[in-house]
Simulated scan of single mutants.
Amino acid sequence: MRAFVFPGQGSQSVGMGQALAGASRAARDVFGEVDEALGQHLFKLMSEGPDEDLRLTANAQPAIMAHCIAVLRTLGIDLPSKAEYVAGHSLGEYSALAAAGTFGLAETAKLLRIRGDAMQAAVPVGVGAMAALLGVDIALAEQIAAACAEGEVCEVANDNDPTQVVLSGHAGAIARVVERAKEMGAKRAVSLPVSAPFHCSLMQPAADRMAEALAAAAMADPAVTLFANVTAAPTRDAATIRDQLVAQIIGRVRWRESVSAMANAGVTQFVEVGGKVLGPMIKKIAPDATTVSLVSMDDIEAFAKEL
C-alpha cells in the first residue's frame, strides 16, 4: 500500500519549481493558474526571490502547494489508482486535499492566501514564538511545556517524530523552554525563525477567519482517503474535513501518530511530493517503510518507471 504525503511551511526555497516548469507544460500550467487565482506573479517570486518575501507566510503557503501540485501533475497519474491514502503536514494538508480533488487548484491557492494572512495577523509580531525540542518524546515535551507556561500559553504544536516535538505559545514561555529544556531532559531546544506562534490557542482569530472562508468554499469528498492532522485518523467526508481544517489552525499536528496509523493500516511506501523534509521523519516513525521524494524531473521520471 502507498501513501502520498505533502510537506508544510519551511520547505520553500528560491528557485523552487523553476527547472520543473522549464521541462513540464503541466507544471507551467499549474503555476500560471495559481498566479491568475491570486492576481500575483507568485511563480516569479518562487523562481527569483527575494527569499525574505518568499518566506512570508501568505506567500510561502500557496507557493509550496503550487509546487507540490506541479510535481504531481507532471507525474501524470490517476491518484486513486496509485495511492490508498494522502496526508500533509500542516499546510501540506491543503496540498493533499487539492491532489485528492476536495478543492480545485485556484480555490486551494485562495484559501491558503487567506490562511497565511489570518495566521500572520492573529498575533502581533514579537508576542508569540516557537521552539523545536530535540531528543524528546511527546510525554517529556508535554511536561516541559507545562513547566514553562507559568500562566502563559505554551503548547505542543507539532508532534513530528519520536525525537522531535515543536512547542508554540507566548514568547516569554518559549524563551523559558529554550533556557530550561536541556536540564529537563531534552537534548536541545532551538528557537524557530517564525513570524507567529502556529498551531496553538493564540491562533483562535485565524481559526475563526478560516471557518468563514471554508464555509464559503466549494468542497467535494476526496477521491483518496485523507489522514487528518488533528485526529491522525482517516476520513473521506468533506463536511468533516472542513471542521478539521478549522481545528487544525489551533490544534496539534499529529504527524507521528498519522504516519504510525498509516503504517499500521498497511502502508509500506510513502511518497513525498514536492519536498525532502518528511522522509527522514517517516523513517524514524516507520523504519520498515520505504520513502520516495519527488522534486526534480529526474525524481519524477525514475518513480514513474516504478509504477
Rank of each mutant, 00 (worst) to 15 (best):
K284I: 08
V14N: 01
M210Q: 02
S24H: 00
I241K: 07
A66G: 10
A132R: 03
A286N: 08
G39E: 06
I144K: 08
A228I: 12
A206F: 08
R188Q: 11
E150V: 13
F270R: 06
M281L: 15
A171G: 03
F4A: 09
D299A: 05
M262P: 02
G104A: 07
P287N: 05
I64Y: 00
A181N: 03
S191L: 15
I77T: 15
R188W: 10
Q143H: 13
K44V: 14
A87H: 06
A261P: 03
L167M: 07
P193V: 11
A302C: 12
S95Q: 09
A109E: 00
P50G: 08
K284L: 10
S258D: 10
A228V: 13
L20N: 04
D299I: 05
P193R: 11
G10V: 07
A26P: 07
V153A: 07
V194R: 03
D78R: 13
A131W: 04
K284R: 14
G128D: 03
L45D: 04
G126P: 01
L45T: 06
P124Y: 01
D53V: 15
V125L: 15
A220W: 13
A217F: 01
A216D: 14
A261E: 08
G279S: 15
F103W: 03
A129H: 02
W255S: 02
T74R: 00
G17V: 00
L111K: 03
V156H: 05
C200K: 00
E301N: 12
